[in-house]
Amino acid sequence: MDNLTMIAVASIITAGVTIAVGCIGPALGEGRAVSTALSSLAQQPDAAPTITRTLFVGLAMIESTAIYCFVVSMILIFANPFWNYIIAHAAGK
């Protein structure tokens, strides 16, 4: 198992772990937010437009964290800087 293969394995495993762990927090947060929003909607149906809009904005904010994880995993797979570095190094050799 040379360096290239090790980097590939590490990158792929890390990407998977990143997206898996990074989704847990936002998922919990979004679940809480949605449940609270639903009970608020049940209590005040008149305020439905405001609650819905605020919920979406809030969900988008929470989701940003998951998106960062997603971006990191994407970078690890498709644009891994070490991968490029090792390739360039190996070519230089």
């Binding site: 988008a60 940003s64 960062y68 997603f70």
Partner: peptide
């Protein structure tokens, strides 16, 4: 900057 980035990546993702 980060919100612009999040905006684009959210839709893309």
């Amino acid at each position: 900057l980060s919100r612009t980035f999040a905006l684009s990546v959210r839709l893309f993702g």
